[in-house]
């Protein structure tokens, strides 16, 4: 497992230069709530037909920041982005709310402030 730290401005460029759709398999986008209202967003990739090769790009952001979308590079990322929007209440470009949660349910359950 290799973790690469990037900044929010570079993430789209980094993934664009890294991602070869015949070599790398996009797993998912993951969010991890950190201390002090910070959120770690991870883009996880694995290599086809290779033993245990996983690469994670991650950024640390505030909840108010807008996360750029990578749908133009990886079309299947849309579903993970929508989940991220629902679970953490962050804003991802072009991803609508309401994949899992209804309007009247508890919002952004994974932020860590709700118990």
């Amino acid at each position: 497992m290799k973790k690469i730290k990037v900044t929010l401005l570079d993430i789209v460029e980094e993934i664009k230069s890294f991602y070869d759709y015949k070599k790398w398999h996009f797993l998912t986008i993951n969010g991890v709530a950190l201390q002090d209202n910070m959120l770690e967003v991870q883009w996880i990739f694995s290599k086809y037909e290779t033993l245990e090769e996983i690469v994670i790009f991650y950024v640390e952001i505030q909840y108010e920041d807008i996360i750029p979308s990578i749908v133009n590079i990886i079309p299947s990322a849309i579903i993970s982005q929508r989940e991220l929007v629902d679970m953490f209440g962050v804003e991802v470009e072009g991803s609508a709310k309401g994949l899992y949660l209804d309007k009247d349910s508890i919002q952004m359950p994974l932020r860590g402030c709700l118990l």
Binding site: L27, N30, V32, I78, L110
Partner: peptide, 26 residues
């Protein structure tokens, strides 16, 4: 896929479950 983050206590910090059907919806 399972992503597990722990901090040395009995409670975990994050468990992320990426299920097969979820990833195939696109």
């Amino acid at each position: 896929m399972y992503y597990v983050k722990a901090n040395g206590t009995a409670m975990l910090e994050r468990v992320r479950i990426k299920t097969p059907t979820f990833a195939s919806i696109p």
